[in-house]
């Protein structure tokens, strides 16, 4: 057993995911207090470049004391079974103080199963660490925080974004890479058949300057037109949060959130959106967030610049009329 913090680097189709840098930043804070190293764990096939070359976009490297690289053809693309088997061997042998995973489509497929398989404790939805080794998790749609000592001997942790900036997990220096051998990956029960590209959609919400975004508070499909009228008056388009898309009220291409688009409009007007972490992480790059919600405890008010605790149905038509009038004058 040692005090090192392992970070399972997430990457998709040749690109390191932003959460990987966020986790490296969290790992650094934790390692500082514990006196261990930050170790990036990279799984892939012919993927050394992801650690050895600067990352696309930032031009920076993974900020880690070293990189453990596991190469295998079955690890070329993420599948839960192969990744689990490869990680179980490594974590079981090295016994680091903690292993960080993204609270994502990749990380959540791994951490819980490994917790049972290896008999190790687990913490989910961790947002940040304190220097004395405490985790702080965010639950109940962002309304409640839970804090405790990092369980031992090896804590498996899934992390949500928000506690650290990606830049804090980036470095101008390339880390050293050590290749780790693993036993054969056989009788895999999950295999990748292929990728389906996102629907193009009529507009790219990531490029729109004004988004009028609707959440569960819009109540039904007929009410979407209220938001459309307002968006049109403001020269923008309508987007939505997960419940609205799952109900089929808006096309998938309009989804703002973890599995949808990350957006950065000049104005993000959130109508009846509570601001759960899965949604919040996708809108923080917006210039100005304005939130309309009847629930004063809605987490959206913690990230919005302006807010109004008012029923959207009392406001939207009045607002559309005033916007039209202002344009006419």
């Amino acid at each position: 057993m040692n005090q090192d913090i392992y970070v399972v680097i997430e990457h998709l189709r040749g690109q390191v995911a932003e959460i990987s840098f966020v986790m490296l930043a969290g790992a650094r804070e934790l390692a500082k207090g514990l006196g261990g190293n930050v170790v990036a764990v990279l799984l892939g096939h012919n993927a050394q470049g992801l650690a050895g070359n600067p990352s696309a976009g930032s031009g920076k490297y993974l900020s880690a004391d070293k990189v453990l690289y596991i190469d295998h053809p079955a690890l070329a693309d993420f599948t839960s079974d192969a990744y689990q088997k490869a990680l179980a061997g490594l974590v079981g042998k090295d016994q680091p103080r903690a292993v960080l995973f993204g609270s994502t489509s990749i990380g959540t497929d791994l951490a819980s199963t490994l917790s049972i398989k290896l008999g190790l404790p687990m913490v989910s939805s961790c947002r940040s660490f304190s220097a004395d080794g405490k985790f702080i998790s965010q639950i109940c749609g962002g309304k409640i925080m839970a804090e405790g000592d990092l369980p031992g001997p090896t804590a498996l942790v899934t992390m949500v974004p928000g506690g650290y900036k990606a830049e804090q997990g980036q470095s101008a220096q390339a880390p050293g890479i050590t290749q780790v051998e693993i036993p054969a990956l056989e009788s895999l029960r999950v295999t990748l058949a292929g990728y389906i590209e996102p629907e193009a959609g009529d507009v790219d919400i990531a490029k729109e300057p004004v988004l009028v975004s609707v959440g569960r508070g819009i109540q039904n499909q007929d009410n979407i037109s209220l938001a459309e009228d307002l968006a049109k008056a403001l020269g923008g388009v309508v987007s939505g949060s997960r419940p609205v898309i799952d109900q089929g009220w808006l096309a998938t291409s309009r989804l703002v959130g973890k599995s949808g688009k990350h957006v950065k409009p000049k104005i993000y007007l959130a109508l009846g959106i509570s601001g759960a972490p899965e949604h919040a992480e996708a809108i923080t790059d917006s210039n100005t967030i304005i939130a309309i919600n009847t629930d004063p405890a809605a987490p959206i008010f913690n990230i919005a610049k302006y807010g109004a605790e008012i029923d959207l149905f009392d406001l939207v038509e009045v607002l559309t009329a005033q916007v039209k009038a202002a344009k006419g004058s």
């Binding site: 917790s115 965010q138 925080m145 804090e147 405790g148 000592d149 369980p151 913690n302 302006y306 807010g307």
Partner: peptide
Amino acid sequence: TGGPTLARMFQTEAGQRATMITGSP
């Protein structure tokens, strides 16, 4: 076995609470 032991649970503290706009619609 396998879950964390909590020291504290609390309502999320607003980092930068929105400037609230009040009044009639």
